[in-house]
């Protein structure tokens, strides 16, 4: 029987099952073994698979990713945990210059079957340096697959796909989604990478949500129903490549589009989606495409200010009303 599971548990299951299935799969990261992971995703895996396959690494992200890339080139399937996406910046050179480029530089003779898991997002009063949503930094780089699952089912299915592909995958989790519950199918299943998911059908407006914002967009859509605004919600899921057909099909039908991300919208994932929709759907648009992103400030520590800096479902509703041309009372 499929049962409800936490997002973090779904991830843990994916890791455990893949490690059992394929003994070239191993985990490396900070505090993932004895401590069970900063977000408890790898809890219990050290006991089960031993220190050779669940490697507690020193606090040196560049070394962790470099080690993983080298071992991947030589036939292992490393799954790196960056404690948070913020620390991946230390390893950015390894990711951009090596993980993404080695297959190309070696003329296809070497692969980098590497997964880098990392949570992003804000909302936990971790202040400016530890609250980033940096999807776009990885979405920018050809040679990487970049995904952001938002449901426990997708978390497990997509992590399995990520481990099984021979391409380097940036697996973007969200700190705020680890405790989300959702139905997870039984047994071994995979969810394809590179595909968006239509979470809700609607006729008036298409909202494309990136990572956790797809979840908020769905909440907003439910509430907007009461105002007679029928919203279609697309969970982008794959930041690179972008799955255009469902988005284009949807926008051509609803004639309106809005894109939401937690990160900064300027030069953001939403910028790319909006530009692409405009190119593909110009003659079908009945309103300008609108984007919603986080406040363009270093994330404040102050709780009220932090809350004010992250898009909420209220913000999504407010912008949705504008896009469809409803008068806003607030």
């Amino acid at each position: 029987m499929p049962e409800e599971k936490l997002y973090r548990v779904a991830l843990r299951e994916a890791l455990g099952e893949e490690m059992e299935r394929d003994d070239t799969v191993y985990l490396i990261g900070e505090d993932i073994g004895k401590f069970g992971g900063a977000y408890r995703v790898t809890d219990g895996l050290l006991d089960k698979f031993g220190a050779e396959r669940v490697v507690d690494a020193p606090i040196a992200e560049e070394v962790i990713v470099g080690t993983a890339i080298g071992s991947a080139m030589l036939g292992l399937r490393p799954v790196v945990e960056m404690m948070t996406i913020n620390f991946s910046l230390v390893a950015y050179d390894q990711i951009v210059n090596n993980a993404a480029k080695i297959r190309y530089m070696f003329g296809g003779e070497a692969n980098v079957p590497l997964v880098i898991r990392m949570p992003g997002g804000a909302g936990h009063q971790l202040s400016a340096q530890h609250s980033h949503s940096l999807e776009v930094l990885y979405g920018l780089i050809p040679g990487l697959l970049v995904v952001a699952p938002t449901t426990p089912e997708d978390a497990k299915g997509m992590l399995k796909s990520a481990i099984r592909t021979n391409n380097p995958v940036m697996f973007l989790e969200s700190m705020s989604l680890y405790n989300v519950r959702g139905m997870v199918p039984d047994g071994d299943y995979t969810t394809p990478l590179g595909q968006a998911a239509v979470r809700r059908k609607g006729a008036d407006l298409t909202i494309v949500g990136v990572s956790r914002m797809a979840v908020l967009a769905n909440e907003a859509a439910k509430q907007l129903e009461e105002e007679d605004i029928d919203v279609e919600v697309i969970d982008l899921r794959s930041i690179r490549p972008i799955d255009w057909p469902p988005i284009v099909e949807s926008v051509n039908r609803t004639t309106r589009c809005m894109v939401v991300e937690e990160g900064w919208a300027t030069y953001g994932v939403t910028a790319e989606i909006a530009a692409g929709v405009q190119e593909r759907c110009f003659d079908y648009l009945d309103a300008p495409i609108r984007r919603l992103g986080g406040a363009q400030v270093p994330m404040p520590y102050s709780l009220p200010l932090e809350k004010a800096s992250i898009p909420t479902s209220e913000d999504i509703k407010r912008m949705a009303r504008k896009v469809v041309g409803r008068k806003t009372d607030a």
Binding site: Y267, A275, R290, D315
Partner: peptide, 11 residues
């Protein structure tokens, strides 16, 4: 994405 029409709508 060139147009500086980015919309950062804070809460």
């Amino acid at each position: 994405a060139e147009k500086p029409k980015a919309k950062a709508e804070p809460a």
